[in-house]
Design a protein around this nucleic acid. Structure first.
Length: 180
DNA sequence: GACAAGATTTGCT
DNA sequence: GCAAATCTTGTCG
């Protein structure tokens, strides 16, 4: 599946994280597509030691460390060996909110409205790189696609290349979107 | 073996 | 609004 299509489909899907026997469930409200022909993608210059996860089968997780203090996570959308993935930019807590707020140290929408915040809230780090999202302790629950009318395509942010690409998608009216 | 850059967040001016 | 924090990977010598 092309990355931009996968990015749209992931909106509304749920992530279920097992933490110390407790379950944290969130809904994906903002995503961004990256593929091998994308100048801003980690796979633009081909396969490297770091991005091997992006060349795995769809449904795997690609986690990378950035700016010396943050993790960001992507869902590989495949097909295998194409180096395409979708960055999870923001999520909306469904259950286990206490766990998230305790882990982030802050409450409200500011706890999960950013790529690195999502990882922090769900305790996602380098150990989950190449993780299969159909297995514990982190699973992706597929949901019916969101109505096109409720999906907004926007220019990308936070990068220095291919900024004009309309590769960022978010659920209209969601209060958890990182930026409008 | 060394250096610059980066898909961000936070706090201070 | 801007700059700092902080480290891994890729590229170059």
């Amino acid at each position: 599946m092309p990355a931009d299509i996968a990015a749209r489909r992931l909106l509304g899907c749920e992530l279920v994280r097992q933490l110390d026997g407790k379950e944290v469930r969130v809904r994906i409200v903002e995503t961004e597509a990256y593929h091998e022909a994308d100048e801003a993608s980690h796979t633009f210059k081909g396969r490297t030691k770091r991005n091997v996860a992006m060349y795995m089968d769809p449904g795997h997780l690609y986690v990378y460390f950035i700016y010396g203090m943050h993790y960001c996570c992507n869902v590989v959308c495949g097909p295998k060996d194409t180096g395409a993935a979708v960055l999870i930019r923001a999520v909306e807590p469904i259950s286990g909110l206490d766990e998230i707020e305790a882990r982030r140290g802050i409450k409200g929408i500011n706890a999960t409205n950013g790529p690195a915040k999502v990882c922090a809230a769900l305790s996602i780090d380098a150990q989950l790189d190449t993780h299969d999202l159909n297995t514990q302790p982190l699973r992706l629950i597929q949901k019916p696609p969101i109505l096109t009318d409720n999906v907004v395509a926007a220019k990308r942010i936070g990068i220095s290349k291919a900024v004009e690409e309309l590769a960022r998608f978010y659920i209209k009216d969601s209060a958890y979107v990182s930026r409008v």
